[in-house]
Simulated scan of single mutants.
Amino acid sequence: MRVAIFASGNGTNFEVLTNHFQKGDIPGKLALLFCNHPDAPVMERAKRLGVPAESFTVKSCGGKEEYEKQVLKLLQKYQIDFIILAGYLRVVGPTILDHYDYRIVNLHPAWLPEYPGLHSIERAFNDHKKQTGVTVHYIDSGLDSGPIIAQRHVPILADDTVDTLEARVHETEHQLYPEAVKQVLTELEKEN
C-alpha cells in the first residue's frame, strides 16, 4: 500500500504520521508528501525526514480543474493507493475523489458534525461549549461530511484560552490520527 500525505502548512501531523510509518507502526509505505504551498514549513520537514515531496499551486496550474488533473497525474506517477489529508486546506474535488473512493481520510479539529470547515476550535471556544473534539473521517463531496472513522472528545476547561485549547486539540490529534490510519490501512491490507 503506497500512501501520500497532503498538507498545506506547518506539518506537525505530517511529522507524527511519518514517524509512525518509518517505525513500521502503520502498514504501508509513505511514498509522497504533496503540498499546495511550495514555501510551507511542511516541505522542510519532508526533506529532513527523507520523504519525497512535490508542490505546486492552483494558480501555477491555471485553475482548479487543471490543478486537480495535475495532482491526479502526480498520484499516478508515484503509484499512490491511499491519501491522508493532514492540514490540507483545500477541498478535494471530483477528479481525485472519483479515483480514490473511500481511499482518502481527513483529520478535523472538532466533534463532527459540529463545526465543519475552518476555525472549528475558535468557534467551539466562542460558543462556550464544555467540550469539543477531534474527528477522523473519510472525505466525500461535502464539507467534512464523510463517514466517521474515529472521534475523541477534548474538554474545554474554565481557564482555557483559544491557544491552550488548540494545544490540547493538537495533542489529541497526534494520538488519534495514527491510531485511526493504522486501523484503516490494516483493514485495507486484509482486503487485498
Rank of each mutant, 00 (worst) to 15 (best):
L33M: 00
L32I: 03
E166V: 02
L97F: 01
G117T: 09
H108N: 13
T172D: 11
L157N: 07
S8H: 07
F82I: 00
N19E: 15
E171L: 08
D144R: 06
F34Q: 11
G62H: 14
A86S: 13
E114N: 15
D39A: 11
E15N: 11
P41M: 14
L188N: 08
R152F: 02
A167Q: 14
Q183M: 11
N192D: 10
N106Y: 09
T57G: 05
M43N: 09
T186D: 04
K59I: 05
Q70N: 14
E66V: 15
S145H: 12
G87A: 01
C61P: 04
F125Q: 06
M43P: 02
I104E: 11
D160Y: 00
E68D: 15
R103C: 11
Q131I: 00
I149A: 08
T132A: 07
L32Q: 08
F82S: 03
Y177V: 05
I26W: 06
V162I: 15
T161I: 05
H170E: 14
R48V: 07
R2N: 14
K130A: 14
V91G: 01
G11H: 10
E44M: 13
C61N: 13
A180N: 06
I121A: 12
Y115H: 14
E114C: 15
H20Q: 11
V92H: 04
R90Q: 13
S55L: 08
L74W: 01
D25R: 09
Y88T: 04
P41F: 15
G50L: 07
H37S: 14
K73R: 15
N126M: 12
G24V: 04
P178V: 10
T12R: 05
K29W: 08
L33T: 03
Y67W: 15
R2Y: 03
R123I: 06
G133C: 10
G93R: 11
K73S: 13
L112S: 06
L33D: 02
H108E: 11
G11L: 10
V91Q: 07
E171H: 14
K77N: 05
S60H: 04
G50I: 02
Y102N: 08
E171V: 03
I84R: 01
V134S: 10
R152I: 13
S145D: 13
V42A: 02
A86P: 03
H174M: 07
V42E: 02
P178A: 09
T18W: 00
D25C: 01
N13V: 05
H170F: 15
D98I: 04
V162T: 10
R2P: 01
T172N: 08
K59T: 06
H20R: 15
R168H: 13
Y138K: 01
S60K: 14
E173Q: 12
A150V: 07
L118E: 11
L33W: 01
V51K: 00
L89H: 00
H137F: 03
H37K: 14
H99V: 08
E191T: 09
I96W: 12
R152P: 00
Q70Y: 08
P27Q: 11
R45M: 03
Y102D: 00
I121W: 10
S145E: 14
V58C: 01
T95M: 04
Y100M: 08
H174K: 12
M1I: 13
K190M: 13
L33E: 00
A53R: 09
A158V: 12
V51C: 01
I96D: 12
L97C: 01
E173C: 12
V184L: 12
E122K: 14
K64C: 02
G133K: 10
Q183T: 10
I96T: 09
P116F: 07
